[in-house]
Amino acid sequence: MEAVRPGIAARLSDLFWRRPGALLLVLLIPPLLWLGVIYIGSLAALLVQSFFSIDEFSGLINYEFTLKTYAELLRPANFDIILRTTLMAAAVTLAAAVIAFPIAYYAARFAKGHMKALFYLGVMLPLWSSYLVKVYAWKLILAKEGILTWAVDGVGASAALNAILALPVIGGGSLSVSYIGTFLVFLYVWLPFMILPVQAALERVPANLLEASNDLGARPGQTLRHVILPLAMPGIIAGSIFTFSLTLGDYIIPQIVGSSRLFIGQAVYAHQGTAGNIPLAAAFAVVPIVIMGLYLWMAKRQGAFDAL
């Protein structure tokens, strides 16, 4: 069949051998066009809009270069949103690292055979199962008449729960309208993104390194602190890129579980939607980009990308 094929395939094949650059170009052009035009083009369009402003009286967009919209971000109401989101992202990242570490360490070091597969799928399935379903599950859990209240009542700890909810700032009418609730859902939804890179980093620690540490007289706690943690650090940083970035940009979780105070994502959504203030929405959207840019820059210096 190949023999009777007209020479065009053969000639093209010869051409690619003579000019390997031509083949590279043919391979790269479609994806680069797609990503370059659609994605980078859109990002640029967004960036440009953030330098426009909105006319307060007419509500129309004023297509002139200005930094006025960025200045608006510094107004207390808007700046609070940025601060609140960043703090939440930091808290979620820290908690995710603490919970992820034992799971990743156990899976990397002690799980063998079926147990290893169980842990792998055990992290992979929640990671890939529907984001909205996960959020929905927490709405069920945190609801006033839901399972958590029922369980807390069951063990007779309602007083403790009420005391926590009575705390200023993080408390609220019920868990589902408090920052604690928002935090729990964020933590749950992004946790697998922390486990995987940490596990990948720990898999690369040779077991004999730990034996060496032991051999040199280190107690398990010392080995953990001086050998395992430093080697897991690139993985933790890689994971934190996900948890941090995902929390910064999310607008659905705080909308469904939490108080009525806005996060960056909600602000972007609100300003571009009903308010029609696209410039301010764009400026808000640039904030996570800048924060993540700084974060990635610091992470790169720590060598975190080797663990991705």
Partner: peptide
């Protein structure tokens, strides 16, 4: 740069991809 370009849409928060596309569509 090509690897980075491929990863970027996942590395940046989804809302940025979303609003970028939306503003590009409206433009």
């Amino acid at each position: 740069a090509v690897s980075l370009l491929v990863i970027l849409p996942i590395a940046l928060p989804g809302i940025i991809t979303g609003i970028s596309l939306r503003s590009a569509f409206s433009l």
